[in-house]
Design a binder for these strands. Structure first.
Lengths: 224, 224
DNA sequence: TTATCATTCAAACGAACGTATGAATTAAAG
DNA sequence: CTTTAATTCATACGTTCGTTTGAATGATAA
């Protein structure tokens, strides 16, 4: 089939890109850095992926296809079991965010590296990557929003959408910051390795997210 | 005094940089783009600021000095009034995050543009900017963490630090995304202008943050 | 007016960027 | 073994990058 070296090269490039884009961002990562780290020729990226932008998209597609597929599978399964009745908010939140964090514990799906890349990319919206992510996320977002609307019929939809947004933010930060940012603390607390911190992060994050999701509705001031 | 043109030029560069760094990131914004938008000569940035990195730091310093000064002033005032008794969590959260969002409504302090820049930068940690932000934030972080420890004596400190981190994330996203990201929704809901959305964002965000901060503590599984 | 000095300006520097090319290399197919 | 096509390779293209330079400009002070 003539593809033994090709597949290897593609994977090596994707793996190296994932790490480097995470560490330096898209603009901060050159083709020479990528191909150097991957141990392949400079021209290999353009040969296998066409361009740097296409490479970036492929880095995300490789992980997101699996992640969002899994999210939909989990949601389907929960809705099947519930037999038409609304799910509990904690189930929905776990299906979306728990699935993400559990993926990060699986090195076969990119581990924590991809998770950090995702977290940082969601706030660097280059046009081409925003367009790509919007398409990649559209189905799973619609499904999970619908599940939340059904689970919380008394909460205005706009409020749920905002709180979904807040949950995304808290999660991305928790991820991107597990050792990138040290604004909040110097992290002498809990000097365990990253994977171990991830074990404890999930229940911590879930408590926070559910507390926020179920918080009393805000009172808008009359002057607004 | 010979400084009339100089001051103008500096301000014009800082204003243009703030907008462009927000829209394109640090690496994605060239000196020629900045000086072109500011209507000044290409060499002006290096003359007035020394380098692109120093310019970036000055863009942040100009706003953060005011913001974090205000945060400390508000905290001092609250602690003075309380007379040694612990503050309420809602007061502390409002002092930190409310002050941030209220600053965004004041165009004289950068308005929503700087807020978005800050939100996006906190997840793009270039070495030089992370070091700079860590120093710029150290005092205000210590003071607010201490206030939360005192306000929530029964909650483990590590838990409070994590939740502070989650709150930062939710806030940054809420800001960065008010029209950057459209993953969650297409925002036909609430087609008001940005400033008006900001009015309603504060109570929404505060409810969410307080709900998360006061959520029941997580139960760690025994196998972790 | 003249001397002084901060600022602005046009122009250029070498380095690094993403991409393209055409020849070498490799492995499968006939 | 020969042919064929996929892949790798060294090299170079044109562009853009951040920064530097030295002369021109402008306002202040003597």
């Amino acid at each position: 089939m003539l593809e033994v070296r090709a597949v290897d090269t593609r994977e090596r490039i994707l793996d190296a890109s994932e790490k480097l884009f995470m560490a330096n961002g898209f603009d901060g990562t050159s083709m020479r850095l990528i191909t150097g780290a991957a141990g392949v020729n400079l021209a290999a990226v353009n040969y296998h992926f066409g361009s740097k932008e296409s490479l970036m998209q492929e880095v995300f597609r490789r992980r997101l296809d699996w992640l969002n597929g899994e999210r939909l599978r989990v949601l389907d399964e929960m809705e099947r079991k519930s037999g038409g009745k609304p799910l509990k908010p904690s189930q929905i939140v776990d299906g979306f965010f728990g699935t993400l964090l559990r993926m990060a514990q699986d090195e076969a799906h990119g581990g924590i590296t991809f998770l950090r890349l995702l977290g940082r990319t969601l706030t660097e919206p280059s046009d081409f990557i925003r367009t790509f992510l919007a398409k990649e996320y559209s189905e799973v977002m619609e499904r999970y929003k619908a599940a939340l609307f059904k689970a919380l019929p008394d909460v205005p939809k706009a409020e749920i959408v905002w709180r979904f947004h807040f949950m995304l933010g808290a999660t991305s930060y928790a991820i991107a910051g597990t050792d990138a940012l040290r604004l909040v603390t110097d992290w002498q607390i809990e000097d365990a390795d990253a994977t171990d911190r991830l074990d404890r992060l999930l229940p911590r994050l879930m408590s926070f997210l559910l507390g926020g999701l179920r918080a009393p509705l805000p009172q808008f001031s009359a002057t607004a």
